[in-house]
Nucleic acid binder design. Structure first.
Length: 415
DNA sequence: TCTGGGGTCCTAGGACCC
DNA sequence: TCTGGGGTCCTAGGACCC
């Protein structure tokens, strides 16, 4: 049996922990670059603000209703998330952290009354210890736990906890959940399912698994089986090794100079390699790209190039020339570039590669000195000269709250 | 004026192996 | 007339998740 404990309106709830003036008011949190609303309080949802709505399209609504707006503060959300997990693992051994605001718990040997009691107690502990409201969904499969959670979130009569382990309960509540709200059913499948008259989670659960496979893939078949009460996925207690990683950003303003593209790409490349070094990984391939906005008029251009890294590498400084050559070869004048980024793929443990005596080894001492200094004094303290070109590419973040729990100078004072 | 940034998994098709 | 039957690996594209 699984429980899914999911934080309500997570980023907004994080902002409210330290800023009481946001409680009870409509609040939204924006994506990077202050572009779209990526989290909304209940009050903001009630105003009709949709997930992903661009800020410039909801300006009037924001002004009219006094919606409070925050830039995203991932340092804060990451730390609050860690505290939520800490609170859960203090009393539960089998926990899978599924996302920044969701954790699956493996429940065993409890009857339904005990499960309900445990879930309510956990919800209260997270609220008391961390200050974050949550809902808990329970079911014999992860998909049913997710569905139970979604139903509990929408309907206050459940007081934040719903157990769908009982088939009779499922018959009662699954028909109230739209098919598109089922975990694993996105926009494309929703349209496909609708065309054959499948509208609700109840309808999905009633599909023949073979038919489901024909409509979608083995993934939809599994979803159907899980909704019908069959467990097809175990809890993942250990994190799987990372397969690839990315560091990409939209620019604060359009970029029209190759120097600034190089500065942005060098910065993203440093960050991507920092990420894999932190996990003792090396990459077999490096991909670079920059592009114009898909939303704006004017000439379009998407430049990209992939480099095989032989031997696999974790050292950004070795690849600076590639960035320069790539931009030089593909930059076009007269284009407003909007975004750039770096992918590292083919990640594998460092040391698992047989070095040839012809290969230049990465300079590990230089990389680790860089990491140590930047960790201690802040990201970007030590960087290459090529990164210091222009300011248009830098991210906009005009309404960010303090890092209350992760920066000494931001820690709240109690008088 | 102004539209995010990460990830995973599956399938089909092609190249290649014996 | 008629030419097997397995495998693996890689890539691109699509769908999904938060």
């Amino acid at each position: 049996m699984y429980a899914l404990i999911d934080c309500n309106n997570f980023y907004v709830s994080c902002e409210r922990v330290f800023d009481a003036s946001l409680r009870g008011k409509p609040v939204i949190v924006l994506s990077n670059n202050d572009g779209c609303a990526v989290a909304r309080s209940q009050e903001a949802k009630a105003l009709g603000i949709k997930m992903g709505a661009p800020l410039f399209k909801i300006r009037d609504l924001v002004k009219e209703h006094g919606v409070r707006v925050r830039s995203s503060n991932y340092e804060l959300y990451g730390d609050i998330s860690r505290r939520v997990v800490e609170t859960i693992t203090a009393t539960h051994a089998r926990v899978e952290t599924y996302s920044i605001d969701e954790n699956f718990i493996g429940f065993a040997g409890l009857n339904s009354a005990a499960r309900y009691h445990e879930s309510t107690a956990l919800k209260e502990r997270v609220a008391q210890h961390v200050g974050i409201p949550t809902c808990v969904g329970i079911g014999p499969s992860k998909t049913l736990a997710k569905a139970a959670n979604a139903i509990a979130k929408k309907n206050p009569i459940f007081k934040g906890v719903l157990d769908l382990s009982d088939a009779a309960q499922r018959c009662l509540y699954l028909p109230a959940l739209p098919a598109g709200d089922v975990w694993g059913v996105g926009a494309a499948l929703t349209a496909k399912l609708l065309s054959i008259g499948v509208q609700t989670a109840g309808d999905v659960a009633a599909l023949d698994p073979r038919q489901a496979r024909a409509i979608g893939t083995v993934v939809l078949e599994r979803t159907v089986r899980e909704l019908a009460g069959e467990n097809c996925q175990q809890i993942a207690l250990d994190a799987k090794p990372l397969q690839g990683t990315a560091a990409t950003r939209s620019f604060g303003k359009p970029v029209r100079s190759p120097d600034e593209l190089v500065a942005a790409l060098m910065t993203h490349m440093q960050r991507a390699f920092e990420k894999i070094r932190a996990q003792q990984l090396v990459a077999e391939s490096l991909s670079l790209f920059f592009l114009t906005s898909p939303f704006r008029n004017g000439p379009r251009h998407h430049a990209s190039q992939t480099f095989q890294l032989l031997p696999p590498s974790d050292d950004a400084l070795r690849h600076a020339e590639k960035v320069r050559d790539f931009v030089e070869a593909q930059f076009r004048t007269g284009h407003d570039y909007a975004k750039a980024g770096v992918f590292l793929n083919g990640l594998r443990p460092r040391g698992a590669w047989q070095l040839s005596w012809l290969d230049d080894a990465d300079d590990e001492r230089l990389s680790s000195a860089l990491d140590n200094i930047n960790h201690r004094y802040g990201r970007g303290t030590l960087r290459t000269a090529a990164q210091i070109r222009g300011t248009d590419w830098l991210m906009q973040r005009k309404m960010q709250s303090p890092c209350w729990t992760t920066r000494l100078r931001d820690v709240p004072r109690v008088r």
